[in-house]
Design a protein around this nucleic acid. Structure first.
Lengths: 215, 215
DNA sequence: GTCTATACTTCGATAGAC
DNA sequence: GTCTATCGAAGTATAGAC
């Protein structure tokens, strides 16, 4: 009995995630969300007051859930590097369960957070704060080379959001007669995640044998 | 006499870039673009046929310009690693001149390219193709460790787009009483670019002294 | 090429009965 | 909590004079 959601608000939120991810805040249609959620539009306004209210509720929920998972990792056992491995895997796992998350995230960054109230912004801010905290501790413990925590945050998570949000456009591009010179096989997402784990370890490692310099 | 643009179409395109970056395709308003460009709305339709037409023209122009710069690097002199350094710097430079590019890119990835025609998609595809080509050659020449070119492409450019598009929301978050535990200084964009150049070299280097494993 | 005026459509939101 | 009907605002696009 795997119903999509128990009650109206949850079902609306689930559908709204799809709609906002596909079309953005301005492109999303309240009518369409209501129809796809099999609820009356007036019902939607009854629960969420406005389109903005629905959007904010959705984002606050998503950010909070992500932050909770990451905080468990940060507060848990393991080396600093292992924690970052798990952060990456956890983010990928979350996206696996909430496929609309990366697109919404991309759009919100582009938008500059204009639709978000203080509370939702705070929920969002927790994500870089937790990841940055892990990096900062690793640097302090001399497990990582000195790197601004936010730099590490962006270089490890932006590619994942980008890559997973971009699955659609990559496929669009792939079967184009262009640039057939470069291999663009649609590798599994899992491979990319492992690549990012590896790249992150390398980027933060203190000892290093020098760089490849060739022509 | 540094006028924004010589004739109507160019001035419209310049303003449209701002509008589409700030609000996205659905959120952008043709009236506002016309007003901000100091042209009559009918004039805009006269030149670009429709909102879609304007959007596509803008994106085709941007993608083409980026691709041209990158191709010069790919076809130029220098080691494979140096070329990637220059690709990163060049992308940062382009964004410096076209501040609306990263937000538009983020939105288009999220959108899946639904507003783009074949020609514009082809222009877009040239970007990963060129960068991927450099990586592929470096791998073949054993200058880089074997890595799928598209993985390298995403891990080196996604953070830059993300970081530079996110300047606004980072500032929004920065002066929030949240997560003051982590240092989130607004470092200069130049520092981040150098970080990404360094991280990219490390990620692709063949010789490596092992990873940091600490607790 | 340029402008005014407007047709046509769609969307967010609510009133009010049940 | 749920529904029907609808209002009013805002948006894209065009007709037609100059």
């Amino acid at each position: 009995m795997a119903r999509p959601a128990r009650v109206s608000p949850d079902r609306i939120l689930a559908v709204a995630a799809l709609e906002f991810a596909e079309r953005g805040f301005a492109g999303a249609r309240v009518d369409r969300i209501a129809r796809r959620a099999h609820v009356n539009k007036a019902m939607l306004y009854y629960h969420f007051k406005s389109k903005d209210g629905l959007y904010r509720t959705l984002l606050r929920q998503m950010f909070t859930r992500v932050a909770v998972r990451l905080r468990e990792i940060a507060d848990g056992e393991g080396s600093h590097a292992d924690k970052l491995d798990r952060v990456i895997a956890s983010m990928a796992g979350f996206i696996g369960e909430h496929a609309s998350f990366p697109a919404i995230m991309l759009r919100e960054v582009a938008e500059g957070g204009v639709h978000l109230d203080r509370e939702t912004l705070t929920a969002l801010a927790a994500v870089p704060a937790v990841v940055g905290g892990i990096v900062q501790q690793g640097v302090k413990a001399r497990a990582f080379r000195p790197v601004p925590p936010m730099f590490a945050y962006f270089s490890m998570l932006a590619p994942i959001i980008f890559y997973l949000a971009g699955t659609r456009i990559r496929k669009e591009i792939a079967h184009l007669p262009v640039a057939a010179s470069v291999e663009m096989p649609e590798s599994s997402a899992g491979d990319f995640i492992r690549h990012m784990q590896h790249a992150t370890r390398r980027a933060l490692a203190r000892e290093h044998a020098g760089h490849a310099r060739t022509s």
